[in-house]
């Protein structure tokens, strides 16, 4: 792993995490994280789309004129999301029913267009792939951590519905740590999502500022793109 790759992974997972630092893709992030498995399912779908769209955008970067970039990127992202949606419906029907509208809505996840525009359209394919995987994994981890917290506090279980993702044999993975009726209902409801995400952002910020700055090269981000911006979709 060379220095660039290492920086890309550190950016995606920590320094410039899409969920906790860029605060992109909040709509699905807050909506589906009622359980860890829902978070994992949407996280994997987003990861696959992000990695594939980064690679395709990077491959086409010399062919696509500047004024055509956005339409082409949107077309690529929408196509990939449709492919993932159909595959989930065909082979993970229960999970697909649970995640519902949030699979097609991956199209509107700003992380995808942001990575295509700010990174993949200017970088070689291999970097774009690493960036897509790192950013996707960063997003997935936030989904899973927030989903686990809300599920644990709200209904006292972990990995409920594991069979939806891993087949009937995985139903035994579900842990019921305390009876469901003792859960804190607020955690499952939408306010719980906001409070949980706020706490995670604060925790990350706390750990980040306490840690000495890494000695290696500065972020590979072009100036301006790593600043958290307002959500546009």
């Amino acid at each position: 792993m060379n220095a660039t790759t290492r920086t890309l992974w550190r950016d995606g997972l920590w320094t410039n995490n899409p969920g906790l630092v860029q605060l992109l893709g909040l709509c699905p992030l807050l909506a589906v994280t009622g359980t860890a498995i829902n978070g994992l399912g949407l996280g994997l779908a987003t990861l696959a789309v992000l990695a594939a769209s980064n690679v395709l955008v990077s491959l086409l970067r010399h062919q696509v004129a500047a004024e055509l970039r956005i339409p082409v990127f949107v077309l690529i992202i929408a196509t990939l999301v449709t492919v993932v949606d159909r595959i989930l419906a065909a082979f993970f029907y229960d999970l697909w029913t649970t995640l519902g509208i949030f699979i097609p809505l991956i199209v509107t996840n700003c992380t995808l267009l942001a990575r295509a525009e700010a990174f993949a359209s200017r970088r070689p394919v291999i970097d774009a792939l690493h960036d897509g995987l790192a950013q996707g994994l960063g997003f997935l981890l936030v989904l899973v951590v927030l989903g686990s917290l809300r599920e644990l506090i709200g209904q006292g279980s972990l990995l409920a519905g594991a069979d939806q993702l891993f087949g009937p044999a995985a139903a035994g993975l579900t842990l019921q740590l305390f009876p469901e009726q003792h859960g804190l209902l607020l955690a499952i409801l939408p306010p719980g999502a906001f409070i949980g995400l706020g706490l995670l952002v604060a925790l990350r910020q706390h750990l980040h500022t306490r840690r000495p700055a890494p000695r290696s090269a500065p972020s590979t981000e072009p100036a301006g793109t790593s600043a958290p911006g307002p959500e546009t979709a």
Binding site: Q63, L68, L75, A78, T79, T82, V83, R86, I87, A90
Partner: peptide
């Protein structure tokens, strides 16, 4: 290619359509 934006857009759209048709057939 860069100076012919429309054919590029057309090609990408056609490739997307072919891919989606294939996935539909399969799923």
């Amino acid at each position: 290619f860069r100076q012919h934006p429309l054919p590029v857009l057309g090609l990408v759209a056609a490739a997307a359509a072919v891919l989606l048709a294939g996935v539909h057939q399969w799923t």
